[in-house]
């Protein structure tokens, strides 16, 4: 070995570099291939749905209720239902998740109890969504008597994404350097003042990103919603607050949360299981719309993160 390495041999070194560079090239080609497969599959799926559903893309599709005739069937109750369920989910999961994450990071003492809680939060994120559906059926639908309502569905999905929000909150809080916390406490602030003026605002970009990623997951969930009994054929919208109802009375501010509902994935599932192939077009079109909804939410998350982080640096 030592005799080979003695002295400078340009030819040998160049051959060595060439071999190394060949491996570089091989790996980058392999990487591009792998990346390409993933992207191509998604692109093909989205494009396929767009093409198949193309003939349904008109205003009527968004403004019509479900119908027995495929050409007249629309997704009005489904997209309204999805948005309202997401609203309940966000209003529940965000305060609960942020408060829980804040408590664990800023208040809780480090001992075996918090260790167990931490491990279980991670485990909760891995619980199959159908299990949440079963839990919700027993608790929200029957025990609490919320029935097969937007409220039940929203709370169920809130449970589902709660671990995501908690983990995102904790990670965002952990990214705040200790010197910021110490700087706040050093002028005589309490823990709560430190959280309110510093920790929560500075963690907000990360929290919002986590919330939207969670909501993007929740909006596509089908199993737990079916379990709690969402209807597949809904030809009405939940009552608008203060609007006049059929019996002449006025709806309350929160009457809509108790309304029966359907959501996008259930509408799609319903259409694909119909024998009439014309409904496959509806399913493809609705699938495309759902995909656009999810991608829009992700885009908002990225934009928000960029906007809010611009002014936060240490």
């Amino acid at each position: 070995m030592s005799s080979e390495n003695a002295g400078f041999d340009p030819a040998r070194i160049r051959a060595l570099i060439a071999r190394g560079k060949l491996k570089d090239a091989l790996f980058s080609a392999l990487g591009i291939l792998c990346l390409g497969i993933g992207l191509l599959v998604i692109f093909a799926l989205v494009a396929d749905m767009a093409v198949k559903g193309a003939e349904r893309f008109n205003l009527g599709f968004f403004l019509n209720f479900a119908s027995r005739r495929a050409t007249q069937a629309g997704i009005l109750s489904a997209w309204v239902g999805s948005l309202l369920v997401m609203l309940v989910t966000a209003m529940t999961a965000v305060p609960l998740g942020v408060a829980a994450g804040l408590y664990l990071e800023e208040y809780a003492r480090r001992n075996w109890i918090t260790e167990v809680i931490e491990i279980n939060i991670t485990n909760l994120a891995a619980v199959p969504s159908i299990v949440y559906g079963l839990l919700a059926l027993g608790i929200f639908v029957y025990a609490f008597g919320f029935g097969q309502s937007i409220l039940s569905a929203g709370l169920t999905l809130a449970l589902l994404i709660l671990p995501i929000v908690i983990v995102a909150t904790r990670e965002a809080i952990r990214a705040i350097p200790a010197m910021i916390r110490e700087g706040s406490m050093a002028v005589g602030a309490t823990r709560w003042q430190t959280c309110r003026y510093h920790i929560v605002p500075y963690a907000m970009p990360g929290i919002l990103t986590g919330v939207i990623i969670g909501l993007a997951r929740a909006i596509g969930e089908t199993a737990p919603i079916i379990t709690i009994g969402a209807l597949t054929f809904i030809a009405f919208l939940p009552p608008v607050p203060f609007s006049e109802l059929a019996d002449g009375t006025r709806a309350g501010l929160f009457d809509w949360v108790m309304s029966p509902f359907t959501v996008m994935p259930i509408q799609i599932f319903n259409w694909t299981s119909r024998p009439d192939p014309a409904f496959e077009v509806n399913a493809a079109a609705a699938g495309f719309v759902l995909m656009v909804m999810v991608l829009t939410m992700n885009a908002i998350a990225i934009w928000l993160r960029y906007r809010l982080r611009k002014n936060i640096k240490w």
Partner: peptide
Amino acid sequence: FQKPNPFP
């Protein structure tokens, strides 16, 4: 502190 730590 050792390192300037103004709040953002």
